[in-house]
């Protein structure tokens, strides 16, 4: 499949899974309905309408029936609005499901705060035993989704509008993208932040690691690579979401951590995602400035 946005690749892959695996079901809340083959699978594509509590509750019920449900809508309506259903109906009942969001952080900038969810991953990270994927390329989306469809795990996939130029194997481990010297700092770029981190640090002696899966967090690779004390975490969502994971990985050695992400403020602006990235210092220039100051 060659669909070159994460959302289109998700739809194409899900349609294929629905065609080939009778265990797979899809729950929707009106968002994205036209992207799926509802006529082919009226029993396993369930559009509940604009009812997000039911979206997750019914997803849990499908899992109880032995199906492998995928639930999909915008991040604020998938994660924040029905969070108690995620916590109780799925997590507490130990039921598996794949939650797939679009519109994280400020991908839907023009829609305003109601459609922005920079805190989704931080919220999901309060729940144990979720695998959280933050893919940076459509190929990674397909690989992650196909693997998730064969398991009974609880998986959250956060799709983004921005993509990196090249995909990386979706192993769940930190990928070693660029190697610096032993004295070089280590940057961990999460999902679609990778290309910007590479551009912002191309002139620096720095190790660049890529995280497309942030829960569980690959502490072993970070410990292997981060020999110098300076560590930089660059996330496309709420600043510091994985800071505790980094600190825990390095708790027995002196280190300094710079967390870059979306600050925890009300940013009452519309515009485009690029406007918001620039405002928060998440464009190439902003990243370069903050990283250079940190390493100075």
């Amino acid at each position: 499949m060659t669909s070159q946005t994460m959302r289109r690749r998700f739809a194409a892959t899900t349609n294929d899974l629905l065609d080939t695996d009778p265990r797979v079901a899809l729950t929707l809340a009106d968002i994205g309905v036209g992207s799926f083959n509802g006529r082919n699978h009226p029993d396993r594509i369930i559009n509940v309408g604009i009812r997000e509590q039911l979206l997750i509750g019914a997803t849990a019920g499908l899992a109880l029936a032995g199906l492998r449900p995928i639930a999909h809508t915008y991040a604020p309506f998938l994660i924040e609005r029905p969070f108690e259903q995620i916590k109780l109906d799925l997590s507490h009942q130990d039921l598996g499901a794949v939650l797939v969001s679009i519109g994280g952080s400020f991908d839907a900038a023009a829609e305003g705060r109601t459609h922005q969810a920079p805190g989704d991953v931080a919220l999901m990270a309060t729940l144990p035993d979720w695998t959280i994927h933050v893919p940076g390329h459509p190929d990674e989306v397909e690989a992650m989704l196909r693997r998730a469809a064969t398991s009974d795990d609880r998986v959250y996939m956060r799709l983004a509008a921005d993509t990196n130029t090249s995909p990386h194997p979706a192993t769940g481990e930190l990928a070693k993208i660029r190697t610096g010297t032993a004295r070089g700092a280590t940057a961990v770029a999460v999902g679609p932040m990778l290309d910007r981190v590479l551009a912002a640090t191309e002139h620096l002696d720095i190790n660049v690691l890529y995280a497309a899966t942030v829960r569980p967090f690959d502490a072993a690779t970070l410990r292997e690579i981060a020999q110098a004390p300076e560590v930089i975490l660059v996330e496309p969502y709420l600043e510091g979401t994985s800071a505790a994971e980094v600190s825990h990985a390095l708790e027995d050695r002196p280190h300094r951590l710079l967390s870059i992400g979306v600050p925890n403020t009300e940013h009452r602006r519309y515009g485009t995602r690029r406007h918001h990235a620039a405002a928060h210092g998440l464009d190439v220039g902003g990243l370069r400035t903050r990283i250079e100051e940190f390493l100075r």
Binding site: A25, T27, D43, R44, I46, Q53, L54, I56, G57, A58, T59, A60, G61, L62, A63, L64, A65, G66, L67, P69, Q85, L88, D89
Partner: peptide
């Protein structure tokens, strides 16, 4: 919580 879960369960059992 119970009725929304029950709806999904009923849909799922029927689908299977």
């Amino acid at each position: 919580h119970g009725l929304p879960i029950a709806v999904g369960l009923a849909i799922g059992l029927r689908a299977r």
